[in-house]
Design a protein around this nucleic acid. Structure first.
Lengths: 335, 335
DNA sequence: CTGTTAGCGCATTCAC
DNA sequence: GTGAATGCGCTAACAG
């Protein structure tokens, strides 16, 4: 532990502690000569101001928290990448918290963070979150808050998302264009807006093409349960000729079941899914994907959060940022 | 911002601030009755102690830092998962820093962290790290430090790694067993121990089988450069019949080049690589992998770090933990 | 331009 | 069993 502090520098230089403090922070009231002397000694002794002392004094921590369901998922790790880039550039520190899609865990984390440890928080809410009191309480405490990707509709704070509904519409329409007549949608079982947005895009596309044979399969966190659901779907006489997976995991589960049941993609079943896995191009067959702008979402959400933290005015279009996803057509849909 | 503090609680209850402080932390000198009254009010008002004040006072932050090259890599995100689990259970907070394999960035991060912001640090060093002064300086400052995966041999601190050399030996021997006669090794270009460990395992396996036709190709961060190197390798008359990729990225680059050049895996080229990508099983063809125990490495490294932070004695075998990797044979090596 | 003083919120002496 | 007083290291208000 470095125990060189302002006091020590001040003694060494025969100056007051406050002068040293000001000199180091380039206060305009301090003479250049003094600044130089102070900075030289500080550099020589490797002085680093104690962050707890200044956080306590200034009531800000230069730290933000990122709360996400999981990190072992390309989307969220790319988001973190974007957040970290912005934070690093601005000299902020980033605390990371994983909820594992557990509402109670999420609640505890937000509870603990309501005490000045961080200057602000960005969150992608857990899919088990039904009660939103903890989010509302956080917002009411006046702490800067930004939602990204999995937002909470009921709470009016800035949000950064992708165009879930439009992207889902395009994906479904793509399946229709390559000849699918019966398309199943593997939905994320929760009441989040990304879930309903993707579902509504799917339904809209069917409606536009005069179809009313929607098949919505609710999937969740457990791989084996998902595979079982998909297995039943593909073995029924209602077997679809196309599947649209609302999240990456479900597309992978579908591949697994198809390999197991010897169902040929794309001949017997066409498949498209949301996914940020770059290796999707190497799959057998290459997977058509909807790629979310994950890095940009993280970057944008962090940028907005810092603006709020620093009490800068938000532009009107920064309150609800939507960044388009991109559909990449590959062989799993017959390309 | 919650501005309920000890003072407010004390006034409300007609107690001294110190009594309230003690009651909340279950000091044995306080009567049960007082404790109950204090805790009840604290809960009612949602009191959360100011972390900066207590960190300043106690000179510890209940926070650790994790410094990694990148997060968008399954290995490191699984490590983070392990770290976060342990931290959460112990009530610690986790700061994350990405170096992007930039030595200067790594140096700056360590510099900034030498001031009490964190109680300890775990790091997987950047592959551009040649000068280790910043690591040595950190160690010398007495701050708890643990290396994982990419360790720095010259510095004597606890480390958690996998058995790189043995795993590489097994992978190479596996290629030999399935009939390869000329095996190239795609090496991570740096002077890190994981690099030399994996290389030595490769060389040992060749030596054991009486081969001296080693081919070591240095690869790096840039995909296009890597692909170019691999392209040249596969188009030369020295073309190998097996490739062993030291890191996931290089295996992916190899797939890309093989698709481009219409080289059939495993018929014309057998391939195995270090990788923690679960979707490797879905590749065309499924990729044989060496899977590192990433979650366990994170968990173990964090556990050891907390032990040091809390000044518990380390068992002798905790100073150098090695957790075995597992080889998963799939079709890319002819399974 | 620089010094003196006060206080952020908490934990820890030392009194009684 | 409880209270009063001190100081962690820093910044800011107020002198001069």
């Amino acid at each position: 532990m470095d125990n060189v502090n302002l006091k020590k520098l001040a003694e060494e230089l025969n100056l007051a502690v406050s002068t040293v403090s000001r000199a180091l922070r380039d206060n305009h009231e301090i003479s250049q000569e003094t600044k130089d002397r102070v900075k030289a000694l500080a550099a020589k002794l490797g002085f680093q101001p104690n962050p707890h002392a200044s956080s306590l004094r200034q009531n800000k921590s230069r730290t933000i928290a990122v709360v996400i369901p999981e990190i072992q998922n390309n989307f969220f790790s790319q988001v973190m990448n974007g957040v970290e880039d912005v934070a690093q550039r601005k000299g902020y520190h980033v605390l990371i918290y994983l909820t594992h899609d557990d509402h109670n865990r999420e609640k505890e984390i937000l509870q603990v963070l309501r005490n000045g440890r961080v200057d602000g928080l960005m969150i992608s809410v857990s899919n088990t979150t039904t009660n939103i009191e903890h989010l509302e309480a956080y917002r009411q405490s006046g702490m800067p808050l930004v939602f990204f990707d999995r937002v909470c509709e009921e709470i009016d704070v800035p949000r950064v998302t992708t165009d879930d509904s439009i992207a889902a519409f395009k994906a479904t329409e793509h399946l229709l264009k390559v000849g699918c007549k019966k398309i199943a949608f593997l939905s994320l079982a929760c009441n989040l807006s990304i879930s309903s947005g993707r579902r509504s895009g799917y339904l809209k596309a069917l409606a536009k093409h005069g179809l009313d044979n929607e098949m919505i399969i609710e999937c969740g966190t457990d791989d084996e349960t998902n595979r079982q659901n998909i297995r039943e779907l593909l073995q029924s006489d209602q077997r679809p000729d196309g599947i649209f997976a609302a999240v990456e995991k479900f597309a992978i589960n579908t591949y697994e079941v198809c390999h197991e049941l010897n169902i040929a993609i794309p001949q017997q079943l066409k498949l498209v899914g949301f996914s940020n896995l770059s290796a999707a191009a190497l799959f057998d067959p290459p997977l058509s994907t909807i790629v979310q702008p994950a890095y940009e979402i993280g970057k944008e959400a962090a940028t907005i959060l810092f603006k709020i933290v620093e009490k800068k005015m938000l532009l009107p279009n920064e309150k609800r940022v939507m960044i388009a996803s991109e559909i990449v057509e590959r062989k799993s849909t017959g390309k």
